[in-house]
Design a protein around this nucleic acid. Structure first.
Lengths: 117, 117
DNA sequence: AACATATATACGAAATGTCGTATATTCTGC
DNA sequence: GCAGAATATACGACATTTCGTATATATGTT
């Protein structure tokens, strides 16, 4: 699971993927329906981008019944983890990331207890 | 000069631009001919990508006679600076970055004294 | 002014990335 | 097995990016 800078940055160079990652940095585990609701985009849209993040090794997924939960991949190299963390710290309060977090918080009927980091 | 994550990552999502930035992190100021030699690519190729980096606010340029010297933009937001620094630390010894540094060191007739950071 | 060097831009072709929509898959409950 | 919910993939159209090559601009020298 070796992540190259090219790999990393072409993954981050898309708003949907970046917004998903930023939410996962806050919430450590989220299912597809939560991301779909928070970002306000179509389900196949999110799903395709999550697949790309999975293939690039940035996230891992876990199936639990009907739901698939995604999280930041636990075995990320230290430098990648730090990059993500600094992007988060520098932009968490900006649009659209701030709103995504709010949108998620307002989601009714989230599967499982809300798991915050 | 406000840098958004989208802006940053689409800039970093190209090998030529990333290799240039990594060299600039080591050498603080380099002219186009040095970058051209170090990366072993055509001059218009480098020049076009440096223009993109300039337009995105990641680098600044300074003309000195025939030469144009580029450097990491001195006013980068802290989070951007940190992202770049961690990418550098995590990958400086990997290909192709390691080789770029070597290639530059072996360049004859560099304009001005070699300026290291 | 003519020329040489360093750098920048223009242009179309090729490659890559993205999107919406339709359809498949996987699982649960009956 | 069937129906429904959550998620994944397929497909073609569209947009964006990248590339090589040709050419333009800027500066210094004679």
């Amino acid at each position: 699971m070796d992540i190259t800078p090219d790999n990393l940055f072409s993954s981050l160079a898309n708003e949907t993927r970046l917004r998903s990652l930023m939410l996962l940095l806050r919430h450590d585990e989220l299912c597809v329906c939560e991301l779909t609701h928070a970002l306000g985009v179509a389900q196949p849209h999110i799903s395709r981008h999550l697949a790309l993040l999975r293939e690039s090794g940035l996230v891992s997924d876990r199936r639990e019944g009907l739901w698939v939960h995604y999280r930041i991949h636990p075995d990320l190299p230290e430098w990648v983890r730090r990059v993500l963390q600094h992007v988060f710290e520098g932009n968490a309060e900006r649009s659209p990331f701030r709103n995504d977090a709010k949108g998620l918080a307002r989601m009714p009927n989230r599967p499982g207890a809300p798991r915050c980091a």
